[in-house]
Amino acid sequence: MFFLAIFLFLLVYCGMCFFFGYMGWNWLEHSFSFRHKKTYILVILVLSLSIFVGYSTSSAVLQTIGYYWLTLTGYGLVLLPIAILLFFLFKKKGIRIIGFGVIFTYVLILSVGTYYAWSPVERNYEVTINKSSERDNLKILMASDFHLGSIVGENHLKKFAHLVEETSPDIVLIPGDLIDDHIEPFLQKNMGKIMTEIKAPLGVYATLGNHDYYGNDDEKIVEEMEKHGIEVLTDEVTMIENDFYLIGRNDDTDDDRAGINELIAHLEHSKPLIMLDHQPNELDEAMKSGIDLILSGHTHRGQLFPGNLLTNLLYENDYGLLKKEELNSIVSSGFGTWGPPLRLGTRSEVVVINVKFK
């Protein structure tokens, strides 16, 4: 099944690149009498292969070029048929103007998408937990899906550290996907130095996401994070100042992860129960178990439109706040990006949750 999936992806990708290249050549040839066919084919081949060469050489530049190219060809499946339809509607006239219209749309997509990916915003939610606590309020800053690696690096991480300082939360929570598969870029670029700057009065806590497992570096990730002051809860529970429980689940990728009931069986359920669970898959189980607040990421809210339509179908809560009886589920679209460093229909974000206890 794995090799079949790879074969199908390559087949579709090759088809997308050929279609995009063929349409581009037709436009250049008919609009400008362009004749350098061999040069054009070489450029298309280089762009098409850049994503694979980028990964094999760990080149962030080639990976970025490859992902931008993938985005262009992907949206080309929508934009180029529209251009063909307009061409025939105008009785095969105006091909040059139609082509420039497509180029303008691509420039707009890449410009807006890049801005939304690298310009994080603050989202705010108000949550009430019907349990008593020593404190009346709790200010949580939550951010998920950093995907720190070759593309998302020090500069973006510094923005997060600045937002934490600016927001002054009581506690910082990171529900998974700290690293983008492999920890080497994190170590090589000394990103841990920036992680050390992330502080909050009640501490900084994280759990692992699916991408933290893919490179088999999960143990190293936990070690590195804790070295820099971030406590990673791996199927663990900790009590914060005798006020509330913080429960951190291993990701669904881990076949041996503990069930929710197993983790909270011996806890005082009269105290607030806050859980970090990277993938928002088990909301019913969390609700029945008495969890008060569950924080997740993973979905990226599709990251690139129309991906949000798919995540909305796949998850009961793919983004934002959902209340199920006494359970409050909050899902973030993420702070970093996976794949293309672009966002359309979503935006890089941190989530500030103002919790009131009754």
Rank of each mutant, 00 (worst) to 15 (best):
T311H: 07
L309S: 03
G320L: 04
P306H: 05
K324I: 15
S329E: 07
E325D: 15
L327V: 10
S333G: 12
H298D: 02
R301A: 02
T299A: 03
S329C: 09
G297C: 09
H300A: 00
I291C: 06
G320K: 01
S332P: 05
Q303C: 03
I294Q: 10
L304E: 00
L304D: 00
Q303K: 02
G302E: 00
L327D: 07
S289T: 11
H300P: 00
N317C: 15
L309V: 08
S296G: 07
G307R: 01
N317R: 09
V331I: 10
L313Q: 11
E316P: 15
V331K: 00
D318I: 08
R301E: 00
Q303R: 01
L309G: 05
L313F: 13
G307M: 01
T311C: 10
L310P: 11
I291V: 14
S289E: 06
G290W: 05
T299F: 03
D318W: 04
V331A: 02
R301W: 04
L304M: 03
L310N: 09
S329A: 11
Y319V: 08
Y319W: 12
L314R: 10
H300N: 00
E325R: 14
I294E: 08
N328W: 05
N308L: 11
E325L: 14
I291D: 01
L321D: 09
G302L: 03
L293V: 11
I330Y: 04
Y315R: 01
G297L: 06
F305D: 07
D318Y: 07
Y319T: 09
